[in-house]
Computed example of a mutant assay.
Amino acid sequence: MKIAFYGSSLLSSYWNGAATYYRGLLKALSHRGYEIIFYEPDAFDRQKHKDIEAPDWCDVVVYEATPDALKQAASCAAQADIVVKASGVGFEDEALLRALIHHARSDALTVFWDVDAPATLADLRNDPDHPLHEELKKIRLVLTYGGGDPVIWEYRAFGAAECIPIYNALDPETHHPVAEDSRFACDLAFLGNRLPDREARVESFFLEPACALADQRFLLGGSGWGDKPLPANVSWLGHVGTRDHNAFNVTPKAVLNISRESMASNGFSPATRVFEAAGAGACLITDAWEGIELFLTPGEEILVARDGADVAEIMRTLTPPRAKAIGAAALRRVLAEHTYTMRAELVDTIFKAHFERRTVEAAE
Rank of each mutant, 00 (worst) to 15 (best):
F206Y: 09
V178S: 07
Y34N: 02
G7C: 13
L303C: 09
R46H: 12
A160P: 07
T272E: 13
E94Q: 14
D171R: 06
E261I: 09
L237T: 03
R357G: 04
D45V: 00
I139P: 05
A4G: 15
H102R: 13
P320S: 02
A119C: 03
G281N: 05
D149G: 02
F158V: 08
L124C: 13
H239A: 15
Y22D: 01
G88S: 12
R140K: 15
C76V: 00
E162Y: 08
G281Y: 05
D51H: 09
L303W: 11
W113C: 07
T242F: 10
V111L: 10
Y63I: 00
A328K: 14
I166C: 08
A271K: 10
S8I: 00
L294H: 14
E53R: 08
T341H: 14
N233A: 08
L25I: 04
I139L: 14
L191H: 09
I285F: 12
Q47V: 00
R32T: 04
F206Q: 08
A264N: 04
L96H: 01
S182N: 12
L124I: 04
D68N: 10
A254S: 11
A305V: 01
D93M: 12
E361G: 03
Y340R: 13
R46T: 03
A200T: 08
E199M: 04
A200Y: 12
P209H: 06
D348M: 04
F295V: 07
P229D: 02
R23T: 08
H49M: 09
S223K: 14
V274E: 10
R183Q: 08
R332Y: 12
R105M: 07
C58K: 05
L10N: 10
N16M: 06
A278K: 06
T20I: 11
R140A: 15
T66S: 14
Y22E: 03
P321I: 01
R32P: 05
L132N: 08
H338T: 00
S106K: 13
G281L: 07
C76K: 08
A77N: 00
F275E: 00
R183Y: 08
F248S: 00
E35W: 08
I36P: 02
E313R: 14
T286R: 10
D215Y: 12
P128I: 03
D244A: 09
A363D: 13
L121V: 02
H31D: 11
I326Y: 11
F355T: 02
D310A: 14
S13I: 00
S223E: 14
P177L: 04
D81Y: 01
K138C: 01
G33Q: 11
F5L: 13
K48P: 01
V234Y: 12
R343T: 02
G299K: 06
L213T: 06
I314W: 10
P131Y: 10
P172I: 06
C186H: 12
V240P: 04
A305R: 04
N266G: 05
S262V: 02
R125D: 11
G7H: 04
P321A: 02
S87Q: 00
R201V: 01
L124G: 05
V360S: 14
T286H: 12
A264V: 05
D81R: 03
N168I: 01
I52E: 10
Y22P: 00
L100D: 05
R333Y: 09
V84P: 11
I139K: 07
L121D: 07
G224T: 03
T174K: 13
P229E: 02
S12E: 11
S259Y: 14
K27S: 14
D310W: 13
D129K: 14
Y340D: 06
I152F: 14
V202K: 12
V61M: 02
N126G: 15
